[in-house]
């Protein structure tokens, strides 16, 4: 499979990244090369192979429904680029 510049711009948009034309050109070329390499996976018959998401199989990791207030909530906004009255502040969201 090969990737087009248009697809690269689509993906950049999904990922919220601006790419100017030159960058899109470079990325298209590089991603195309990488995807070309990755195409080797098509050699393998995986029809009857299960997918692995995690290498160490664990199940049912659960916690009890008990409130824990040990986290200092004063710190929640300590890194906010912009804040006011206890809220994070962002440019107006228009719906």
């Amino acid at each position: 499979m090969s990737i087009t510049k248009q697809e690269v711009q689509y993906v950049a948009k999904l990922a919220r990244l601006y790419l100017d034309d030159d960058q899109a050109e470079v990325f298209t070329e590089q991603l195309d090369q990488i995807l070309g390499y990755i195409d080797q996976l098509n050699e393998i018959d995986v029809q009857n192979v299960a997918a692995t998401s995690q290498s160490i199989a664990t199940e049912n990791v659960l916690r009890d429904d008990v409130v824990d207030n040990t986290y200092d909530r004063e710190l929640s906004l300590s890194n906010a680029p912009l804040k006011e009255d206890g809220f994070f502040k962002v440019p107006k969201v228009i719906e």
């Binding site: 929640s76 912009l82 006011e84 009255d85 206890g86 809220f87 994070f88 502040k89 962002v90 440019p91 107006k92 969201v93």
Partner: peptide, 18 residues
């Protein structure tokens, strides 16, 4: 939750409560 009205000083901002 996004709060658009009634809080904060800036009408051009939205306010985020998590």
């Amino acid at each position: 939750k996004l709060v658009h009205d009634g809080v904060g000083s800036d009408p051009n901002s939205s306010y985020v409560d998590l």
